[in-house]
Each structure stands twice: as C-alpha cells, then as structure tokens.
Design a protein around this nucleic acid. Structure first.
Lengths: 229, 229
DNA sequence: GCAAAAGTGTTTCTCGTACACCCATGG
DNA sequence: CCATGGGTGTACGAGAAACACTTTTGC
C-alpha cells in the first residue's frame, strides 16, 4: 500500500534531547543506530510522526518506547529542516528536549535500538545526521532557560538539598556560585518548601531537604514575580 | 503526476507572524484568504515548504512573495502540529516571526492573496486555522525576548530617538517606563552610538538621534554582558 | 579527633526606582 | 508666548557580591 500526493512532501520526525542529572553530571541520552544510514553511530532518540498524533504526542510516545519513561518534562526545542540533513530523503525534524532525574527514575536502557546510553556532555561521540547541532541547540536552550525559569528542579529528585541544587546550577551554567549568596537568594524567593526531613546515613552533618513549591511559584508569577538565577 | 510514499505524510508549511511598528503601534500583517477553507477569513501569511529549500528559506520566500520585503529579521517561533489544525488534511506548520520597520520599508500590500493589511494587535479579527494561537505565541515570544535580546531595534529605523525606543518598549511590554531611568539604563549599556544628527522640522526641541551598534553589542556579549530591559 | 559537608552574617557597592523642572523649536 | 516634546540629577533602598568560621556526623 502506498500514499499518493499531488506534490512531494518531506517526512516529519521528532527527535529528543533527553537531559539527565545523576548526582554530579549533566548527561544526555543517546541511541546507537541499528540500521543504515549511520548504522552503528550514536544518535538522538526519535522517530516518525504518525498521522493520528500531535507533535507533542509523537515525542512523548517515542520517548516512552525508547526509555520507558512517560512522566517527564518535555518541551519543544526547534525544528530542523536543512534540505540534505538526511542522506536518504527530505526529512523535517521537530526537536524536543526533556529533563529527567536519573536517581528517581529507572530508565529502560534500550529498546528496539541496538544500544542506548547516557553520555556526559563533554564526552559525546560524533552523532548521526545533524544531531550534533540539535544537541547544541538543546544545551543552549537549557543554559538560557534555567536562569529565568524553574526548570532545574525537573532534574532533581522531589526532595533535595540546597547543595544539590547549587551544584546543578554550577554544572549547567559552567560557573562557580557562592554558597551563602545562593542560599539567601533561593530562600528569599519563597518558592522552596523547607521539609522537616534531613538526609540519612551520611558521614557528616545531615542536610535539610527542600521541595519546589509549584503552587507558590505560580501564585508569585501572577503577582509579577520573575524567577531569576 | 503524483508522489507515492510507503507511509502517509503530513504536509509541511511555514506561517509567519510579521510584526511592524509604525510610529506608535505594534501591528501584525494579515492576509485575506482567497480560497477555501476559511475563504474570506484573515490568516497569517505562509505556504508550503518546497523540497529544495530549508525551512528558513521557505519562510523568507513566502514573506518576499507576500510582502516584497526580503531583508528583515526572521526567526523560527514554534511548530504547530495538532492533528486537526487544518480541516482538509494533516498539516504541520513551522511558524516564524519577523520584525520590520514600517517607516523605512515600503510594504507591498498584496500579492496573490485577495487582500492584505496591517492590524493593530488589539484589533485583530478571528483568524483561520489555529493562527490565533500562533499569533499569541508570537506575541508572547517578543514580549519575553525583547527584555533580554536587542530585537527592539529591528522595529525602528536605523536612526532613532530615545523616546521612540522607549515608546516601543512601552507598547510591547504594555507598561509605563520612566524617561530618565530608561535613558540612563540604555546609555549605561554602551550599545547605542550617539549620532551628531538631530531630527528636523519639528515644532519643538529637536531630538538627538542614536543608532544601535551591533559590533559593540557583540563585543560586550563575548565579555559576559547580558542585555536586560 | 579527623574528614567532609552543612550552615550561618556582615559589609560594601551597584543599580533600580521615584520624582520635577528647565530647554529648544515652530507656529 | 504658548504648546510640545527633549533633556537632565539626586536621594533612597534593595539586593548583588565578596568573604571565613563553626557545627554536625560517621568512622
């Protein structure tokens, strides 16, 4: 069975830049391609958009199939349409980026792809297609967005220490932050809920745990509050 | 002649939200549709992506065909892919937004479309397809982006008065700004070149003209400078 | 008692904000 | 001389930045 159209059409795919944070490093999920072209090369997870699903749905479906994770932060990134970005034929790819906490979730490390793995951002191999560009666009996006949107929390467990949060920002922004100033700033914002719990079984003073309070955050936004760094 | 594919494919279009500023108001360019569906309704300019052009090229070509303007600020906005966004068939639209100065450029007010016109933002009619959503996304984008990227200058003539710039910001951000503080802030940034020229033939004290210095701006960026409001 | 991370305050300085009057020009 | 918009300075307060020591815990 084939489908006939009066004019030629690009194929439409979604590709996902999935960022994970595993208690120290920011990583990205890659899939090793099992078929040509670029067989054996690493690539971003993705696939064709079906006719009965929206772009968002396609991205979420692909991610579920390839990682087993369905409940994550997912946002459209950019669409890539260079004429020759796929050697076989014209393909337009709508890229998404996702944020995931690698401690809480257990990620299905493979699927129909030959292999899958988490790569440290400065240790990424050459990627298939224009996926290097897509990845760079994704990195630029979270670098920019983390400063004025509370997306960092998506990469942490629900309950976290302030030092974890600070370290996350330091990794993403590639800079050093002052502990006291960081704490003052975050706590002054009033978007963190201070929990009664503290971490357990550590060989040093146990840290207090916090939780991001989305409700409070949204209330503040309505009042004109701007999250900033 | 028809084109046959093994799997069905969405059609791919580009749609453009073209913002213009005409010495007082922020406007958007709309086209009155000459054909079904939504014949007679107003819509964003746009059209199908050809197989031999990238998405950016498609947007620029459509804009050239419908407005006669080719040299303008154009940036990808978002891709829209709701399954039923076009009643005829599945269409994925990659939306762009463009900024244009309506004083300097003379806009070809029509083309193959039945009619075209500039609409004040709070005077936009019901739009075809999901173009209302696309327009709102575009408005949200410039509202957000104008604060931390120097895109406002794209809407002004090359040489402008500080009061024009301030008024532009007031319109886009829908707020009042203090004249003295606004001037101090902008001049402190050192991205404006103070020209020797002043405006002519006005029934009041003539204003000094300024020009945005892109080179200085890019130098500052490299040094870690952040444009902000 | 030592290693390792948690937690805490003060000072300085920059910048955001609020605010009112005189200036230049054309008609 | 009047209407219109152009142009300027200061005082206050909030928050950014810089900076070092004590606390708690497990081993």
């Amino acid at each position: 069975m084939t489908f006939n159209y009066q004019y030629p059409r690009p194929a439409v795919t979604v590709d996902c830049v999935v960022f994970g944070f595993d208690e120290g490093d920011l990583k990205v999920l890659l899939i090793q391609r099992g078929i040509e072209p670029f067989k054996g090369a690493w690539a971003l997870p993705g696939g064709f958009v079906q006719m009965d699903e929206s772009l968002d749905e396609a991205a979420r479906r692909e991610l579920g199939e390839e990682t087993g994770v369905t409940d994550l932060f997912l946002e459209q990134l950019y669409s890539f349409g260079r004429v020759d970005r796929d050697p076989r034929e014209r393909v337009v790819s709508v890229a998404y980026y996702a944020l995931i906490n690698l401690n809480e979730q257990s990620i299905k490390a493979s699927s129909d792809a030959a292999n899958a793995g988490w790569f440290n951002l400065d240790d990424v191999p050459n990627l298939a297609f224009d996926h290097q560009t897509i990845l760079e666009t994704g990195i630029a996006r979270i670098r920019g967005k983390v400063r004025y949107q509370p997306i960092g929390f998506e990469l942490l467990p629900e309950k976290f220490k302030l030092s974890q949060l600070q370290h996350l920002y330091e990794v993403i922004l590639a800079c050093q932050l002052d502990k006291r100033n960081f704490r003052k700033k975050l706590l002054r914002m009033k978007v963190l809920e201070e929990l009664d719990e503290i971490e357990k079984d550590v060989a040093h003073r146990a840290a207090r745990l916090y939780r991001f309070d989305k409700t409070k955050y949204e209330d503040l936004i309505k009042k004109g509050f701007h999250f900033d760094l």
